[in-house]
């Protein structure tokens, strides 16, 4: 068994799978980081991902275009996030309740629309999914070539988004405003920054990320839509946001660790160890819980998180 684990094919395979499995987690985590940095916790993430997965899949199924599917998933995510913005930003309702409401609503809506379009066939319809792209030259490097440089285009885009989101948050005008609003919305308002509009835009950006993260699962990772396709990855992204201390690079590291554990457990299942496969499925989630316990005590939560902002209606 040991020799199997340390073979070149095994290592290449597990690195490749790690990157693949971590793509939706990282993408969703980046979206959640942008949203939470502006002071809004979007618990609609799980439902938004499922909705993106369904809309992306159905769009590709009917048009035959994978990229149209990705675009539709992003728009679907934005639409749900705007509902979240109305509830939690403009009406100032509890972010927890609004977010969970969105998740429940979107999960139902996703299945409803899927049934409406597809019906209930005995064999679910499939699409021709994204295939990995081997980057010329680089993909010929031993081990690294077959793993790092033979991936889906959405995975490459996700890698580029990690530094892009970092630069956005820490080096741009808009990023400074987002961070300030997340820490002290009153301070931002007094210097003329529109708090609620900025929060809405952050929610919309996050929603696009969630939608595409969901669509990755139905357009690349698999080739069909199943109701449990997200499998709690949205909640994992919430955990990774905290794990990464609201920093895109650290959040991505968390996503990679989860992706690795997910890839590892899949392989352990096939090695024929005499244990129920559910035990292996549990591993990444269990380790996530332990990682969170150890890290989150030091986490520095954005001070304005969970607090709707309104100019006070009575002063001194």
């Amino acid at each position: 068994m040991m020799s199997e684990i340390f073979s070149v094919a095994f290592i290449t395979g597990i690195i490749a799978a790690t990157l693949r499995m971590s793509t939706p987690i990282i993408l969703a985590t980046l979206g959640e980081i942008i949203t939470e940095r502006s002071g809004v916790l979007n618990l609609g993430i799980e439902g938004t991902m499922l909705f993106g997965a369904a809309i992306g899949f159905l769009t590709t199924l009917s048009t035959g275009s994978l990229w149209l599917g990705v675009l539709a998933a992003a728009l679907a995510g934005i639409a749900l996030s705007l509902i979240m913005a109305i509830l939690s930003v403009y009406l100032g309702l509890s972010q927890h309740v609004s977010g969970l409401g969105i998740t429940i609503f979107a999960s139902g809506l996703a299945m409803f629309i899927y049934r409406l379009v597809v019906g209930s066939p005995t064999v679910p319809p499939i699409i021709d999914p994204f295939s990995p792209i081997a980057i010329p030259l680089l993909s010929r490097i031993p081990i690294l070539g077959g793993s790092f440089f033979t991936q889906y285009s959405l995975t490459y885009i996700t890698w580029l988004l990690i530094p892009a989101v970092s630069i956005f948050l820490f080096k741009t005008r808009a990023g400074l405003r987002v961070r300030t609003i997340g820490q002290n919305p009153f301070a931002a308002d007094t210097v003329g920054v529109n708090v609620n509009l900025t929060r809405t835009l952050c929610l919309a950006a996050g929603g696009a990320f969630f939608g595409v993260a969901g669509a990755f699962l139905t357009l690349a990772h698999q080739n069909m839509f199943l109701i449990d396709v997200i499998g709690g990855r949205g909640w994992i992204a919430i955990a990774m946001t905290i794990f990464g201390n609201w920093n895109p690079v650290m959040g991505a590291v968390g996503g990679l660790i989860f992706g690795f554990l997910d890839a590892l457990q899949l392989r352990l299942q096939t090695l024929g160890v005499d244990l129920p496969f559910h035990i292996f499925l549990m591993i990444p989630y269990l380790i996530t819980i332990f990682a969170l316990i150890s890290v989150s005590r030091k986490a520095s939560v954005p001070a304005g998180l969970l607090k709707p902002y309104r100019r006070e209606d009575k002063g001194g």
């Binding site: 741009t172 005008r173 400074l176 405003r177 300030t180 301070a187 210097v191 003329g192 920054v193």
Partner: peptide, 8 residues
Amino acid sequence: IGMEGSFF
């Protein structure tokens, strides 16, 4: 904040 000028 609020007076940043350019995009970056």
